[in-house]
Protein backbone atom coordinates (compact mmCIF):
# COMPACT_ATOMS: atom_id res chain seq x y z
CA UNK A 1 0.00 0.00 0.00
CA UNK A 2 1.38 3.41 -0.90
CA UNK A 3 0.02 6.89 -0.40
CA UNK A 4 -0.48 9.47 -3.14
CA UNK A 5 2.86 11.19 -2.73
CA UNK A 6 4.86 7.96 -2.70
CA UNK A 7 2.95 6.58 -5.68
CA UNK A 8 3.65 9.71 -7.73
CA UNK A 9 7.33 9.67 -6.78
CA UNK A 10 7.54 6.01 -7.70
CA UNK A 11 5.84 6.73 -11.04
CA UNK A 12 8.37 9.36 -11.99
CA UNK A 13 11.38 7.45 -10.67
CA UNK A 14 10.66 3.94 -11.88
CA UNK A 15 8.99 4.47 -15.26
CA UNK A 16 11.54 5.13 -17.98
CA UNK A 17 10.86 8.34 -19.91
CA UNK A 18 8.25 9.72 -17.45
CA UNK A 19 8.33 13.54 -17.31
CA UNK A 20 5.23 14.24 -15.22
CA UNK A 21 2.35 12.58 -13.41
CA UNK A 22 -0.79 13.58 -11.56
CA UNK A 23 -3.52 11.98 -9.49
CA UNK A 24 -6.76 13.61 -10.55
CA UNK A 25 -10.31 13.64 -9.19
CA UNK A 26 -12.48 13.64 -12.31
CA UNK A 27 -15.63 14.54 -10.39
CA UNK A 28 -14.10 18.00 -9.89
CA UNK A 29 -11.20 18.14 -12.38
CA UNK A 30 -8.76 19.00 -9.61
CA UNK A 31 -5.45 17.26 -8.98
CA UNK A 32 -4.92 15.53 -5.61
CA UNK A 33 -1.21 15.49 -6.33
CA UNK A 34 1.23 16.29 -9.11
CA UNK A 35 4.88 15.59 -9.76
CA UNK A 36 7.21 16.75 -12.52
CA UNK A 37 5.88 18.93 -15.30
CA UNK A 38 7.41 22.33 -16.03
CA UNK A 39 6.59 25.99 -16.55
CA UNK A 40 5.49 25.21 -20.08
CA UNK A 41 3.64 22.04 -19.08
CA UNK A 42 1.21 22.88 -16.30
CA UNK A 43 -0.15 19.65 -14.80
CA UNK A 44 -3.18 21.37 -13.27
CA UNK A 45 -4.22 22.47 -16.78
CA UNK A 46 -3.67 18.89 -17.95
CA UNK A 47 -5.74 17.58 -15.01
CA UNK A 48 -8.71 19.79 -15.88
CA UNK A 49 -8.49 19.07 -19.61
CA UNK A 50 -8.10 15.33 -19.29
CA UNK A 51 -11.03 15.23 -16.89
CA UNK A 52 -13.11 16.25 -19.91
CA UNK A 53 -11.50 13.42 -21.92
CA UNK A 54 -12.37 10.82 -19.28
CA UNK A 55 -15.91 12.14 -18.80
CA UNK A 56 -16.52 12.18 -22.57
CA UNK A 57 -15.41 8.55 -22.88
CA UNK A 58 -17.53 7.42 -19.93
CA UNK A 59 -20.57 9.22 -21.38
CA UNK A 60 -19.97 7.72 -24.83
CA UNK A 61 -19.81 4.24 -23.37
CA UNK A 62 -23.07 4.84 -21.53
CA UNK A 63 -24.71 5.97 -24.77
CA UNK A 64 -23.40 2.90 -26.58
CA UNK A 65 -24.70 0.69 -23.79
CA UNK A 66 -21.25 -0.80 -23.14
CA UNK A 67 -20.97 -2.62 -19.85
CA UNK A 68 -17.19 -2.81 -19.61
CA UNK A 69 -15.06 -0.39 -17.61
CA UNK A 70 -12.23 1.82 -18.81
CA UNK A 71 -8.85 0.50 -17.68
CA UNK A 72 -6.68 3.02 -19.40
CA UNK A 73 -6.65 5.60 -22.20
CA UNK A 74 -3.61 6.16 -24.41
CA UNK A 75 -3.03 9.39 -26.29
CA UNK A 76 -0.16 9.38 -28.77
CA UNK A 77 1.48 12.67 -29.73
CA UNK A 78 4.35 13.02 -32.17
CA UNK A 79 6.86 13.25 -29.31
CA UNK A 80 4.93 12.21 -26.18
CA UNK A 81 2.64 9.55 -24.84
CA UNK A 82 -0.09 10.47 -22.39
CA UNK A 83 -1.42 7.60 -20.35
CA UNK A 84 -4.58 7.83 -18.26
CA UNK A 85 -5.27 4.99 -15.84
CA UNK A 86 -8.56 4.91 -13.97
CA UNK A 87 -8.32 3.81 -10.36
CA UNK A 88 -10.45 0.94 -9.13
CA UNK A 89 -11.70 0.15 -5.65
CA UNK A 90 -10.61 1.16 -2.14
CA UNK A 91 -12.25 4.57 -2.27
CA UNK A 92 -10.39 5.39 -5.46
CA UNK A 93 -13.60 5.75 -7.43
CA UNK A 94 -13.68 8.89 -9.53
CA UNK A 95 -9.88 9.18 -9.70
CA UNK A 96 -7.34 8.63 -12.44
CA UNK A 97 -3.59 8.61 -12.73
CA UNK A 98 -2.22 10.73 -15.54
CA UNK A 99 1.25 10.04 -16.88
CA UNK A 100 3.31 11.98 -19.43
CA UNK A 101 6.05 10.05 -21.25
CA UNK A 102 8.79 11.16 -23.57
CA UNK A 103 8.15 9.04 -26.66
CA UNK A 104 11.84 8.73 -27.50
CA UNK A 105 12.83 7.27 -24.14
CA UNK A 106 9.71 5.42 -23.04
CA UNK A 107 8.80 1.79 -23.41
CA UNK A 108 5.05 1.93 -23.71
CA UNK A 109 4.34 -1.70 -22.82
CA UNK A 110 6.56 -1.50 -19.77
CA UNK A 111 5.10 1.85 -18.74
CA UNK A 112 1.54 0.50 -18.88
CA UNK A 113 2.56 -2.54 -16.88
CA UNK A 114 4.30 -0.47 -14.21
CA UNK A 115 1.49 2.06 -13.98
CA UNK A 116 -0.99 -0.79 -13.46
CA UNK A 117 1.11 -2.06 -10.58
CA UNK A 118 1.43 1.41 -9.02
CA UNK A 119 -2.34 1.87 -9.34
CA UNK A 120 -2.93 -1.49 -7.63
CA UNK A 121 -0.78 -0.51 -4.66
CA UNK A 122 -2.18 2.99 -4.30
CA UNK A 123 -4.30 3.75 -1.25
CA UNK A 124 -5.97 7.16 -1.32
Amino acid sequence: MTNTETALKETLASIEGATGAALVDYTTGMALGTIGGSKSFDLTVAAAGNTDVVRAKIRTMEHLGLKGEIEDILITLSDQYHLIRLIKGRGGNGLFLYLVLDAKRANLAMARHQLKKIEGDLEV
Binding site: V24, T28, G29, M30, T44, V45, A48, G49, T51, D52
Partner: peptide
Protein backbone atom coordinates in the same frame (compact mmCIF):
# COMPACT_ATOMS: atom_id res chain seq x y z
CA UNK B 1 -18.88 21.22 -13.29
CA UNK B 2 -15.19 20.64 -13.81
CA UNK B 3 -13.84 22.84 -11.00
CA UNK B 4 -10.28 22.58 -12.26
CA UNK B 5 -11.37 24.06 -15.57
CA UNK B 6 -13.62 26.60 -13.80
CA UNK B 7 -10.58 27.87 -11.88
CA UNK B 8 -8.38 28.07 -14.98
Amino acid sequence: ANVGRLHL
